[in-house]
Simulated scan of single mutants.
Amino acid sequence: MGISPIQLLIVLVIVVLIFGGKRLRSLGSDLGHAIKGFKEVNKEDKEAKTKAQERVRHDQTDDDVIEGEVKKEDHTH
């Protein structure tokens, strides 16, 4: 039981009559800007998480560990 094209057209005509063409255009534009902004913020958030995960992985590696041995010298003469 979906919406038929005729029903969709009737709803669209009613919306245009209520809001008017100009106001509907500005609402569509505002909605487009909001969606674009949401996508940008979501992308930046994903990039920040990826960078944080890379830092954690780098900090967890043992590449920077220097192994050595401590020897005690005997200074008795």
Rank of each mutant, 00 (worst) to 15 (best):
V70A: 08
V16F: 05
D62N: 14
G2H: 10
L9F: 13
I6C: 01
Q53W: 04
K36D: 14
L8E: 14
V16M: 07
H75R: 09
V65F: 12
F19T: 09
K46W: 00
T61V: 08
K22Q: 11
L31S: 14
G28K: 04
L9R: 09
H58Y: 09
S4N: 12
R23G: 06
I14F: 09
V41I: 04
D30C: 06
I35W: 14
G20Q: 12
G37I: 01
H58G: 04
R57V: 01
H58E: 12
G37P: 00
D63V: 12
L9I: 05
Q53L: 02
G2T: 10
E54Y: 00
T50G: 04
G20F: 09
V16L: 11
V13A: 11
E44T: 00
R57N: 05
K36W: 07
D45F: 12
L8V: 06
I18Q: 08
G32M: 11
R55E: 01
V65P: 02
E73I: 14
Q53M: 03
D64E: 05
S26P: 02
S26I: 12
G32I: 11
G2I: 06
Q60N: 15
H58A: 15
L31H: 14
V65I: 15
I10G: 04
V65Q: 02
G21W: 15
V65T: 06
P5Q: 02
G21I: 13
R23E: 13
G20D: 10
K43N: 14
E47Q: 00
K49Y: 00
G2V: 08
I18S: 06
Q53V: 01
I14A: 13
H75E: 08
Q60W: 11
G68A: 10
D30F: 09
L8P: 02
A34H: 09
N42L: 15
T50H: 07
Q53S: 03
D59L: 14
G20E: 10
H75Q: 05
E73T: 13
R23S: 13
F19H: 12
K39C: 09
I35R: 15
R23T: 14
A52Y: 03
E54A: 05
A52T: 02
L12C: 06
